[in-house]
């Protein structure tokens, strides 16, 4: 494959624009969804229906002073938001938006995204450790404990799909679903996947590392201004990637009637993100030990049984 420097820069700019725009839209959408689910309207002042509110907030956050606590581990403290954010640029690369719109077709794209998803936790752990704050530390420790619950069911989910398609390439997986989406074959797996990515992206009801009523703000207790907004950006970008992966794995990628492929992909991605927001504004938080037992006692058996049945059906 022939990659020129120009195209790499082009992809980077495009992905950066996508990450930024996505966060602006998602923060606004989240506040709107929250508002309407709580008999409110959400932001209404900046721009029509408050669409520019995130931009205004972003400018405010960026212009704020960077506060570093005296006792904090300064390099780690500054590194943490970056560690959280940077992998996104790589994880966006193999994500196909349509048959032609894709940064780079990798034959192990799926593996790359799953692996890079783990780096988010590293960012959280660094933030928790570097802040030198007990609440932040508890948040960081919880984030690590959380991996135990979701990573294995998530991988088994992904393995099942790989087994069905016979390829690690996201593009191949999407193409294989031209006629029937995987969600029709694997509805339970889809539910398991949605739950595990909700866990992976630290979203309520599994927002243990943030846990407002318990840990004040969890791992980002000490962050303000730019650091805080980077974490925010990372959170929403991970949501986008998780939803994009769900789209490709289960909802047939860009396939759909009438509309162009990119539009279908975006519609599917944002529908799944809406679903995750819907969870957040409905459920109370699960307790951390309950989450672990939920992961091991329900998610893992479910996905394993599914895996075995699928293998059996495929072998026949």
């Amino acid at each position: 494959m022939n990659i020129s420097l120009l195209s790499v820069v082009g992809y980077l700019v495009a992905i950066a624009a996508l990450v930024g725009l996505n966060a602006v839209i998602l923060v606004w959408l989240e506040r709107k969804v929250a508002g309407h689910m709580q008999f409110r309207l959400g932001p209404m002042e900046v721009g029509p229906h408050g669409i520019l509110q995130t931009l205004a907030d972003g400018i405010k956050l960026v212009s704020k002073q960077l506060v570093i606590p005296d006792e904090a581990d300064k390099p780690l403290f500054l590194l943490a938001p970056i560690v959280s954010l940077v992998p996104i640029f790589a994880a966006m690369v193999p994500l196909p938006f349509s048959e032609t719109v894709q940064a780079w077709e990798l034959n192990i794209g799926l593996l790359l995204i799953i692996a890079l998803g783990l780096l988010n936790t590293l960012g959280i752990l660094l933030a928790g450790w570097g802040s030198n704050n007990k609440y932040a530390l508890l948040g960081g420790a919880r984030a690590v404990a959380q991996i135990l619950a979701y990573k294995i069911p998530l991988l088994i989910c992904v393995m099942t799909i790989i087994m069905m398609t016979g390829s690690f390439s996201l593009r191949d997986i999407a193409i294989a679903q031209k006629d029937t989406w995987n969600v029709l074959y694997q509805p339970i797996l889809f539910i398991v996947y949605i739950i595990t990515v909700t866990l992976e992206t630290n979203r309520s009801p599994f927002d243990f590392s943030e846990a407002e009523s318990e840990l004040v703000a969890g791992f980002h207790t000490e962050y303000s201004g730019m650091g805080f907004s980077l974490f925010f950006l990372a959170e929403y970008s991970y949501m986008f990637i998780a939803a994009g992966l769900a789209t490709v794995l289960f909802l047939g990628g860009w396939h759909g009637p009438w509309l162009p492929g990119v539009a279908w992909t975006l519609i599917k991605i944002y529908s799944i993100i809406f679903l995750m927001m819907w969870f957040r504004w409905t459920f109370p938080r699960v307790r951390i030990d309950q989450m672990l037992s939920f992961g091991w006692k329900i998610l893992l058996p479910l996905s394993l049984i599914n895996f075995i049945i699928t293998a059996g059906v495929l072998a026949l």
Binding site: G35, H36, M37, F39
Partner: peptide, 13 residues
């Protein structure tokens, strides 16, 4: 919560 979305907002602007 979905029902709430289709309820008239209780707030005043």
């Amino acid at each position: 919560t979905m029902g709430n979305v289709f309820t008239r907002p209780a707030t005043v602007q």
